[in-house]
């Protein structure tokens, strides 16, 4: 019985890679000033795509990833109109660190706090960092989990691809 179970689980794992297209879900988030907002109202970009990044102040690869994006963001923004939005999954222990942390790093992104992981759960994120690319209709067109040095090149290719398609 155990072998049957493992076979099923493995089958499930590899089959899910075929599945694409996940639309954006609407839940409550907090701004850095603690205002409650609906994710659907703030995660949008009239100018082009949105890069939605799930992270936390205690997540080492997340910080490496966002430092890399921050260096490239002015060029990306100018060339594709992309908006980078961070969703902090810091809980009550560390959510107060988010504003000084982000400003202390000099990051220029929009940041929202998902203190009880409601959006993380709604977007089916398992581990952070996890990045979604949304087109101008708010549909998920690409996603990526974890961060390895140099991943930003692939991210930019994906942003360019949907920007070109939209044009």
């Amino acid at each position: 019985m155990k072998h049957v179970f493992f076979a099923v689980v493995l089958g499930l794992f590899f089959s899910v890679n075929l599945i694409q297209a996940q639309s954006f879900s609407n839940v409550q988030l907090k701004t850095l000033e603690r205002q409650t907002v609906q994710s659907g109202d703030v995660i949008q970009n009239d100018e082009g795509p949105v890069l939605l990044c799930f992270w936390a102040t205690w997540c080492k690869p997340c910080i490496k990833e966002l430092n890399a994006y921050n260096e490239l963001y002015p060029d990306w923004e100018e060339e594709t109109g992309v908006k980078i939005i961070l969703i902090s999954t810091d809980n009550a222990r560390s959510m107060h660190r988010v504003a000084p942390f982000v400003n202390g790093k000099g990051w220029e992104f929009d940041v929202y706090i998902d203190a009880n992981s409601d959006l993380k759960r709604a977007m089916n994120v398992v581990n952070i960092p996890h990045t979604f690319l949304l087109n101008s209709e708010g549909e998920v067109v690409w996603q990526h989990t974890s961060y390895m040095e140099g991943d930003e090149a692939e991210v930019y290719e994906q942003i360019q691809a949907i920007t070109v398609n939209n044009e």
Binding site: V8, V16, L18, I19, N124
Partner: peptide
């Protein structure tokens, strides 16, 4: 565990109702 193949089928066949959609995740 007899129910599991059904769940797998849901995923592998990219089950979607005509107007709805199914999303999810897996961790093992």
């Amino acid at each position: 565990v007899k129910v599991l193949p059904l769940l797998m089928m849901c995923a592998s066949l990219q089950l979607r109702a005509q107007e709805g959609r199914v999303t999810g995740n897996f961790q093992g």
